[in-house]
C-alpha cells in the first residue's frame, strides 16, 4: 500500500487550514495558527484576510511570519494600523475567526494562558493573555489549537484568561461578551466542537490511528461523543506538498 506519510503537526496544520473558508478574516495567534492560516490561503482561501494584533491587516502572505508583529505580518499590507484599531475593528464585526493557543482549555472552551496552580502562589507562571482575551471576546468564532493531555484539558482551568462559554449556556450573554465564542478545538488526537444546548465540548472527529476512547482517556472531563463521529481525513498529497514546500520549508513550526 502506498500510504501518505505525515507527522502529527502536519496533520494539525492541515486540519486547521480546512476550517478556514475563502473570504473570511482571521485574527491569527502565534505558532501553529500562523501555519494553518497561511496554508489555507495557498490552498483554498486565496481571499482570506489575516489580522495581527500589532496592527497589521491583510498582508500578502509570502513567508511565515516568525512572530505576530514581525515585518512579514505587514509585507505589502494595504494599511498598517495600531493595536486599539485592530481590536476595535474586531468589535465592529470585521473579524470572523480567531485562532488561538494556550496552556489549558476546559469543557466550556475557557482558555488558561496565565498560570498553572493557584494564581497567588503559582506552580508555573505563564505569559498572560496577550491579545487572546480580546480575540475570544470580540471575534465571530474561535478555533483553539493545542496538545491533548488530561492536564491540558481539565474540567476547570486554573485561571480563566480567555473566555469560552464561561460556566455554561447563556453565560457569555450574561457577561456581556459580543463574539460567538469557541467553535472548534484542534488537538493532536482529534477535532472537537461544542454542544449547542449544554455548551460542552464534544468530539467531531478523531485522527487516524486514534479511537474515540483514546481521545476520552486523554481528556480531563467527560467528552460528549455523538454516534456520528468520524475519522479525520488524512492530509492529501497536495496539502502536504504546499505545506512542506511553500508554507514552512524550513520546518520552523511544523516538523
Amino acid at each position: 500500500m502506498n500510504e501518505v506519510q505525515y507527522t502529527p503537526r502536519e496533520l494539525l496544520a492541515c486540519v486547521a487550514a480546512r476550517l478556514i473558508s475563502d473570504g473570511e478574516s482571521v485574527f491569527v495567534g502565534t505558532g501553529l495558527p500562523l501555519v494553518g492560516a497561511l496554508l489555507a490561503h495557498k490552498l483554498h482561501a486565496p481571499n482570506m484576510m489575516a489580522i495581527y494584533e500589532c496592527g497589521a491587516v491583510d498582508p500578502e502572505p509570502r513567508v511565515l511570519p516568525w512572530s505576530v508583529a514581525c515585518s512579514w505580518t505587514y509585507h505589502k499590507a494595504p494599511t498598517i494600523l495600531s493595536m486599539t484599531s485592530v481590536f476595535g475593528h474586531s468589535r465592529a464585526g470585521y473579524a470572523d475567526v480567531g485562532f488561538l493557543g494556550g496552556a489549558q482549555i476546559d469543557m466550556y472552551g475557557n482558555i488558561n494562558a496565565t498560570c498553572i496552580g493557584d494564581y497567588d502562589n503559582p506552580k508555573v507562571r505563564l505569559t498572560g493573555s496577550g491579545g487572546a482575551n480580546d480575540i475570544a471576546s470580540l471575534c465571530g468564532k474561535v478555533i483553539f489549537m493545542g496538545l491533548h493531555l488530561p492536564e491540558r484539558f481539565p474540567e476547570k482551568c486554573d485561571y480563566i484568561t480567555t473566555p469560552g462559554f464561561l460556566d455554561g449556556p447563556g453565560a457569555r450573554e450574561r457577561a456581556g461578551l459580543v463574539g460567538g465564542g469557541p467553535w472548534r478545538v484542534i488537538s493532536h488526537l482529534g477535532v472537537m466542537g461544542f454542544d449547542e444546548e449544554t455548551c460542552r465540548m464534544k468530539l467531531i472527529s478523531y485522527h487516524p490511528g486514534v479511537t474515540p476512547d483514546v481521545v476520552q482517556q486523554f481528556t480531563g472531563f467527560e467528552l460528549i461523543i455523538p454516534d456520528d463521529v468520524t475519522e479525520t481525513p488524512k492530509p492529501t498529497e497536495e496539502e502536504l506538498r504546499v505545506l512542506r514546500e511553500e508554507v514552512d520549508p524550513n520546518q520552523l513550526f511544523v516538523f
Partner: peptide
Amino acid sequence: SHGGLALSLLAAEKGLNYVACKSMLGTDI
C-alpha cells in the same frame, strides 16, 4: 489583556477618564 491595556493608554491620549469596553469580561482577569 493586550486590548484592555492598549485602551487604558489610549484613554490617556484621547483625554478620557476611562473607556467602556467588551474585553476581559467574565474572566479571572
